[in-house]
């Protein structure tokens, strides 16, 4: 604790912090514990069992939906990362162009737009388009991917944009000065430097897609139900221990992924700290 803060105050502060963490984690822990409960009832402990995992892995509907969700999330993350990176380049590198205000508005709006409005709007667009040009036919993986890209692209843009803005612009100028053409500069210098942000953006888009219920509910059809829609319809009917098992698997996967990411970040941090200090350049 820094100067000026007494022991009691620090204790109170950390007490509140623990409370916040407890609030965040107790439900997840409870779910994990009950995924191993043989009993269907929440309040009754019927003994340790893997039964719900077994049932989950035999549920064709859930498995199909999970496979679809993975495909959608992968396609979405890839397209959103490409488009979002381009958008970030536009926002950071092209200072002035016609329609800049509209562009920044369209990037920022999906970040806060209630999903239910985006979902409704997307569906109405697809219906109107199908009427007008005959595409897309019905609700399919295509419509889900388009809708997901539209809202996750903004998140990618924000992540990449901040990294790009932090990047020393003279690095690109130096590469050009040494004879590299603009496209090559982007591929050889800019992309490797902002690569961590691209990865973060990709993961974010992947997560947003695989997690989305509301927008998917509008743009998915009977033939193409992603996992959250299937879970949602199960959950609306009440508690289902299968879902506990599914949740535990998700948490385990995310936990492992985060642990790896954290380790990578930590080791990079250490690298940076070895950096010798240099007096910062004065502005010209």
């Amino acid at each position: 604790m820094s100067t000026g803060w007494g022991r009691n105050r620090a204790l109170a502060l950390y007490g509140l912090l623990s409370l916040a963490y407890a609030f965040l984690y107790v439900p997840i822990v409870v779910m994990i514990i009950y995924s191993f409960n043989a009993s269907r009832l929440v309040t009754v402990w019927g003994g340790f069992s893997f039964k719900w995992y077994g049932e989950l892995l035999q549920d064709e509907k859930v498995l199909d939906a999970a496979w679809l969700s993975l495909q959608v999330a992968f396609a979405n993350a890839t397209i959103a990362t490409i488009l979002g990176t381009l958008a970030a380049v536009v926002l950071v590198r092209f200072r002035r162009f016609r329609g800049r205000t509209l562009f920044t508005g369209m990037i920022a709006a999906p970040l806060v737009m209630p999903e239910i409005i985006t979902g409704l709007a997307m569906l109405l667009l697809f219906v109107a388009m199908e009427q007008a040009i005959g595409w897309p036919q019905g609700r399919s993986m295509t419509t889900i991917v388009i809708a997901h890209v539209t809202f996750s692209l903004s998140f990618v843009t924000v992540v990449v944009q901040s990294r790009l803005a932090q990047m020393d612009a003279s690095l690109e100028e130096a590469a050009m000065d040494l004879g590299a053409r603009p496209a090559k500069v982007f591929l050889v210098i800019t992309l490797p430097i902002i690569a961590p942000a691209l990865l973060a953006g990709w993961l974010l888009a992947f997560t947003l897609s695989i997690d989305d219920v509301v927008i998917s509910a509008f743009v998915s059809g009977p033939g193409a139900s992603p996992l959250p829609i299937v879970i949602f319809s199960k959950v609306r009917l009440g508690v289902s221990p299968e879902i506990n098992a599914l949740a535990t698997i998700v948490v385990a996967l995310v936990g492992v992924a985060m642990a790896i990411a954290g380790r990578v970040m930590l080791s990079r941090d250490r690298d940076e700290r070895h950096r010798p200090t240099v007096t910062s350049p004065q502005p010209v």
Partner: peptide, 28 residues
């Protein structure tokens, strides 16, 4: 920080669902 962000990376739907088991009348 990682611990704050972690729940975000797990399913929103599942986390909301977890509260049903906790809050319902015969719940935890």
């Amino acid at each position: 920080l990682l611990l704050v962000a972690l729940p975000f990376w797990t399913s929103f739907l599942i986390r909301v669902y977890a509260w049903i088991g906790i809050l319902k009348t015969e719940g935890l």
